[in-house]
C-alpha cells in the first residue's frame, strides 16, 4: 500500500474553513465552545482533541509578492496533524494505542488508549490532546475509515480550491516541487516547502502532511526545526552511558587516589 498524505498549498487557501467543518461533521466531533478571540478571523485557535483541522489567519504589515495592496497581506493556512515519518506521539505511547496504518498514517486506537497523556507532550507541533469529558487522546485519523472505503479524506473533498491535496506521498512531493518552482518563476521567491522530506526536516524525518508556505514557519505558529523527542534516543543513551562511565571513572579514580596514601 503506497503511503498516503496531504500536500497543503497555502497559496490556494481562501480561508473558508470548509475543511474544519467537513472534518467535524464526518467525525461527529463536539464544538470547542463559542469564544471570540479577536485574533483576525481565527476563533478556533489551535488543533486539539475536538479540532482536527484549524485554519490560521495571519495579517502581515508587508505585501505579498505579486499582489498590489499596499503594505499589507493576509495569509491563510489549514493546519492538521502532520502524520510524521517519525511520530513523537507514536513512539511515546506506552499502551501501543497509537499505530502506523497501512496507509502510513498515524492513528490512535480509541479502544486501546488509556488517556495517560504521554503523547501530548511528545508532539513537537502540539497537535494531539486529551478530551476533558472522556479522557482519551484524539487527533486527525487521516479519515482512516474513508480511506478503507476508497474515499478521500473529508477535508480534501470539501476544499473548494484544492489547497488541500490528498494522494500518494511520492506524487504529492513531486507535484509540490513543481509548484514551488513555478511560483519562483513567477517571482514568488518566498514560497518553500515545509516538512517535505527528511533532508529538510531531519527532526521528524519528513511529514506525510506537508505544506507550501509563504513566510517563516513561526509566522504560521509552526516550529522551525521540530524534533521528535524520542529521536535523539540513541544519543541520549550514549550521553547517559558516557556520563555513567565518566562518573564511574571519577568514583574509582577518587578511591584509588585516596588509597595511595
Amino acid at each position: 500500500m503506497p503511503t498516503k498524505g496531504f500536500f497543503t498549498d497555502t497559496t490556494l487557501c481562501i480561508g473558508c474553513k470548509a475543511c474544519e467543518v467537513a472534518c467535524k461533521q464526518w467525525n461527529q466531533l463536539p464544538d470547542d465552545g463559542f469564544l471570540f478571540t479577536a485574533m483576525s478571523y481565527d476563533n478556533t485557535v489551535s488543533l486539539g482533541a475536538s479540532t482536527w483541522r484549524h485554519v490560521a489567519f495571519i495579517e502581515r504589515p508587508e505585501p505579498l509578492n505579486g499582489q498590489v495592496a499596499g503594505d499589507f497581506s493576509w495569509l491563510f493556512s489549514s493546519d492538521v496533524c502532520k502524520h510524521c515519518a517519525r511520530a513523537g506521539c507514536l513512539e511515546s505511547c506506552p499502551t501501543g494505542a497509537i499505530i502506523r496504518t497501512e496507509f502510513g498514517s498515524v492513528y490512535v486506537q480509541p479502544d486501546v488508549c488509556n488517556g495517560c497523556g504521554y503523547c501530548v507532550v511528545n508532539c513537537p507541533f502540539g497537535v494531539i490532546d486529551r478530551r476533558d469529558d472522556d479522557g482519551r487522546a484524539w487527533k486527525c485519523t487521516l479519515c482512516y475509515d474513508r480511506l478503507r472505503e476508497n474515499m478521500i479524506p473529508a477535508c480534501a473533498k470539501a476544499c473548494p480550491t484544492e489547497s488541500i491535496k490528498f494522494g500518494d506521498l511520492d506524487d504529492l512531493r513531486a507535484a509540490a516541487q513543481t509548484r514551488v518552482e513555478q511560483l519562483h518563476e513567477n517571482g514568488m521567491h518566498e514560497a518553500y516547502l515545509y516538512g517535505a522530506g527528511a533532508e529538510s526536516q531531519p527532526g521528524t524525518e519528513g511529514l506525510h502532511a506537508f505544506f507550501l508556505l509563504a513566510d517563516r514557519p513561526e509566522v504560521y505558529n509552526l516550529p522551525p526545526d521540530p524534533v521528535v523527542p524520542t529521536k535523539p534516543g540513541k544519543q541520549a543513551w550514549a550521553s547517559m552511558g558516557f556520563a555513567m562511565a565518566g562518573m564511574a571513572l571519577a568514583a574509582i579514580g577518587s578511591v584509588l587516589l585516596g588509597a595511595r596514601r
Binding site: G15, Q67, L75
Partner: peptide
Amino acid sequence: VMKARERGATIIHVDPRFTRTSAVANIH
C-alpha cells in the same frame, strides 16, 4: 476564479475592506 488566476488571469478586487477575496487577488 482561483483556477483562472492560476492560468494567468488578473483578479482585481474593488471593496471598501480587505476581505478573503482581496487576500488572493492580484490587485485590491
